[in-house]
Write a protein that binds this DNA or RNA. Structure first.
Lengths: 69, 69
DNA sequence: AAAATATGTAAAATATTTTTGACATTTCGG
DNA sequence: CCGAAATGTCAAAAATATTTTACATATTTT
């Protein structure tokens, strides 16, 4: 699932490490999610959205076509 | 995390089994999520929201226990 | 150019979600 | 009331996500 974490994080002038700290996860978790290695848990998705002053629906773009099979 | 799946599902006149089928998960998964046994994956959250014609942010209410500064 | 900061990546261990199968209870229409 | 549909629950296993540790490259700052 595509997301705009990198873009919004850059706008907020936060490093991956800083965002990770706010969200209470490892820097590598933020990095992996930004690079679409896997999706975050729903809770973490909300935490990241809050940290970046946006919503889950704006931050993550789900293509319903590619729903889980 | 609290959610309004049960309420919206009832409004839509869908059974847990029907919603599960639309979302391509087991009936027990829908039941467990409705009863707050665990949170769904982000992808499933989007699928359920789509099926109930709403958004993830409206369907799930996050307690901003961990929020920005 | 060197130092400091930031980002990318990966494997193994850990944690969480989902499935499967089963059975009990509740709800609802006929 | 009876039977069917719907819901609740449980345990074990499978599937998926996160953390940790470690190191590499890249970018920025001085």
């Amino acid at each position: 699932m595509k997301n705009y974490i990198k873009e919004l994080r850059s706008s907020s002038k936060l490093s991956q490490a800083e965002l990770a700290k706010i969200c209470k996860v490892s820097r590598q978790t933020i990095n992996a999610i930004e690079n679409d290695k896997y999706d975050p848990t729903l809770q973490l998705a909300f935490n990241i959205a809050n940290a970046l002053d946006t919503t889950v629906d704006r931050l993550f773009v789900n293509n319903p076509k590619y729903s889980k099979t």
